[in-house]
Design a protein around this nucleic acid. Sequence first.
DNA 1: TTTGAATGTTTAATCGATTAAGCTTAATTT
DNA 2: AAATTAAGCTTAATCGATTAAACATTCAAA
Lengths: 336, 336
Amino acid sequence: MSKRTSLKDIADKVGVSTALVSYVINGQEKEKRVGKEVVKKIRTAALELNYQPNQIARSLRKGSTKTIGLIVADIANPFFGNLARVIEDEASRLGYTVIFGSSDEDSGKMESLVDILINRQVDGFIIVPAEGTELQIKALQEKKIPLVLTDRYFIDVTTNYVALDNYGASFDAITHLIANGYKKIGMIAYKSNLIHMQERVRGYIEAMKANNLENEIRLEEVRYNYTMIDNEKAMNNLAIGEKKIDAILFATNSLTVSGLYCIKKLNLKIPEDLAIIGFDGNEAFDFFYTPLTYIEQPIEEMGKEAVGMLVEQIDGSTKIAHIKLRHTLIKRQSSL
Amino acid sequence: MSKRTSLKDIADKVGVSTALVSYVINGQEKEKRVGKEVVKKIRTAALELNYQPNQIARSLRKGSTKTIGLIVADIANPFFGNLARVIEDEASRLGYTVIFGSSDEDSGKMESLVDILINRQVDGFIIVPAEGTELQIKALQEKKIPLVLTDRYFIDVTTNYVALDNYGASFDAITHLIANGYKKIGMIAYKSNLIHMQERVRGYIEAMKANNLENEIRLEEVRYNYTMIDNEKAMNNLAIGEKKIDAILFATNSLTVSGLYCIKKLNLKIPEDLAIIGFDGNEAFDFFYTPLTYIEQPIEEMGKEAVGMLVEQIDGSTKIAHIKLRHTLIKRQSSL
DNA sequence: TTTGAATGTTTAATCGATTAAGCTTAATTT
DNA sequence: AAATTAAGCTTAATCGATTAAACATTCAAA
């Protein structure tokens, strides 16, 4: 790497101290009363030498890196990819750069990601926390590192967060199914204590109860690392045989997609044999032979809010905000 | 942010100089002959104080940040999301962290991303270059910043790159269509001078010529920012009316998806009215009423190779490698 | 006994930018 | 003329870790 130009190079060229150069570069020539001639010379020299300030040095000195650490479950998952994109744009608008990592819903991986990003002195974190990471989050808070949780949060750890009103979303979806005449409604969710999953399940159960269908409740839980296998079992349990149901709500995008593969395999007619509602948008939902009804999340709002809240924290605010966003139920043929 | 523990804190606690602490922390106690007792004390103190080295300070001193800058067209696009994921994992395996940005295929955005990442002193770049960014790439080379291009590259700029053998992929797809009896084969591509697009088109044209079908060549070019509109026009031109074709090759994932929307709208029967072949995998391809034949890219290999090549460069290698990877043609009903 | 190694440790410069404090002149006020 | 103020600039410490070089002590060889 050929030597980059530093403040010193400019200072030498113009024949002044680095202090003056720094003032001019940072637009403080007025406050610091730098001579007009000198300002011009410095500006010219900076351009000629194509000076770019070294952010690392600046960060070390200032104790702030203008960097946000983003931890999601998996950047390859379209939901998180889209979220990451929104966060990137919003962060960049506010002068921040994003470093990311995927936790794979694994608390160990998440811990090492957090450590790595702390060592890189990120100014704050946006985290989609994995199961069992309460203590990690608490530790971050004790270190007074700005932090916003997204998608999920912990009831017993008071943090900033932006999440969907998951309870309301499920409730709405189930209510919609019931309104369309379905009664034997099942749900396939991930086996997880995370609040977003619990709330989605709770919305299902409460909606069933509210319609006196508590006896029809059929919840199947799938392990994250065995999505396909467990989902297939679950679908067999629910959609086949004597006690088969007539509608299903899937709790996430990936569960919906893997569910669709099962449905194809089982050769089920949608919505005649089984009505379905999915979670999050996905191009696949549009091209399934019966277009899918699904719960749409306001990803853009979620990402923007998260960045906004985080930057407020970084700028010194200590207020804690809990934001719950509303879903949109996109109604199509799969639930008619 | 409560004060983090620094080398100095440990040094003070143990009663030695920071030098010794640094040696021990970096596992150089043998070479630097640090006393056994002292080593123990330092280790203990480091644990007690939960010492985490400040990477910023280390980076400034060492002139290396152990950071890779990744620039893709759009992280929300599944192809790039998957690529990013592979790159993240491989980078992390080698001790690197990834900073990313999306260029939106815009040379201006790409330039500012590159500048920002340079100022953050990334050790090297993995770039999916936008159209018209040859000079930016050349500038990076002149600054001797390690660099690997992916997905595309420039003929007149000699750089490391990893890309698909796009010519071969198109050629193969067209050959497959012809083997299945299709003759009036069209192609929808992006209007772009980028090599990957040019090669995909060239593969199409050469395959047609090789089969004495040069008179049937029907190429439609779509503008990136008007994918939907232009694609719809293109589809109307190709698939409707007197001179309609009987098969189409789409040049990218996004073109394929938007093409599927058109096909749905036009109510075409696949493959009876029109055979189609898409680019890259996509869950939507599996659920389209006729499962799609598509050209699969070896994303994992691509990402791993890119990181591997980049780290070699960072470690001082100056050899230039051009890697072309082979596709896999996933044959299904849409091209029967 | 002297010289030379070997061992163990400290000192201080360095990376590049920031910034409080101090130092010159010149200009203005009393 | 002396004192004050302003204008314009430099000095040097600082952020935290790294590392070449110097220093000090002990031990062994000549």
